[in-house]
């Protein structure tokens, strides 16, 4: 048997796309799990309204914060899940030894989680409109941008921390414990920006919050990209 010529090693982008396709395919094939995360986020939104009682004024005022808390809680589940899939049968080793660039693994996981959370945010928004009686005061495009930037900001550090905690003991406690304090700036600015979109922005503050969110993204996508190989290689 003659060995065919070995194909050229794939580049960073090709590997990222291949891994991302695989992750999305897994999400699609296990959409029951995906549905569970969506229902979890919806239940969170519902619980906030119970915690506050039937005061719709108060709910409407705080809607931005509850919306982002629901996404944050769901992100812990989706991030943990995306690395649980890899630890079953040591799949991450299989990918590493393929070989796939470790940075491609970071990018694919972070982009995958961003897509998932953005979709989740878009899905639960109408429910929030119904539950809390909010309406968009400025523009839906602003809201979409905030949602995307906020989910990007949760996903980059979240991917690094999920990779770490999936290999440690007590992984379910560890991920939120590490992630929550870290994403406070992102959460703050996303919440503020969302509130401005929902309640009007008379003083034109939206831009500065979006700037903060973008800066946060730039820093953590960069640092994550550089640090991630050290975390998953022995």
């Amino acid at each position: 048997m003659s060995t065919p010529p070995r194909p050229r090693p794939v580049g960073l982008i090709t590997a990222t796309v291949a891994l991302l396709r695989k992750d999305l395919l897994i999400e699609w094939r296990t959409r029951a799990r995906l549905n569970a995360i969506i229902f979890f986020a919806l239940a969170t939104l519902l619980m906030f309204s119970f915690a506050l009682g039937p005061d719709t004024k108060l709910l409407e005022k705080n809607a931005g914060g509850y919306y982002w808390l629901a996404i944050l809680f769901a992100s812990v589940l989706s991030l943990g899940e995306s690395f649980r899939v890899e630890s079953e049968n040591a799949c991450l080793d299989g990918v590493r030894l393929a070989p796939a660039d470790a940075r491609a693994i970071f990018l694919s996981k972070a982009v995958g989680n961003t897509l998932l959370l953005t979709a989740l945010g878009a899905l639960i928004f109408p429910v929030m409109v119904a539950l809390y009686g909010v309406h968009i005061a400025t523009s839906a495009a602003d809201l979409g941008l905030i949602l995307l930037l906020g989910c990007l900001a949760l996903s980059a550090p979240g991917t690094v921390y999920a990779a770490i905690s999936s290999n440690a003991r007590a992984r379910d406690v560890l991920l939120p414990l590490l992630l929550f304090p870290l994403v406070i700036p992102a959460l703050l600015s996303a919440t503020k920006a969302t509130t401005l979109v929902l309640q009007g922005d008379p003083m034109n503050q939206l831009g500065s919050w979006l700037g903060l969110l973008s800066g946060f993204n730039l820093i953590y996508w960069g640092v994550g990209f550089v640090l991630f190989p050290r975390i998953i290689e022995d």
Partner: peptide, 25 residues
């Protein structure tokens, strides 16, 4: 050692950002 170093770096970078965002907030 490796993982905690990564966590320490990510956390420390965050502190100035936290400071600015909270003050703004």
């Amino acid at each position: 050692a490796t993982w905690s170093s990564a966590v320490a770096i990510l956390g420390a970078i965050n502190l100035p950002i936290v400071w600015f965002s909270v003050r703004w907030w």
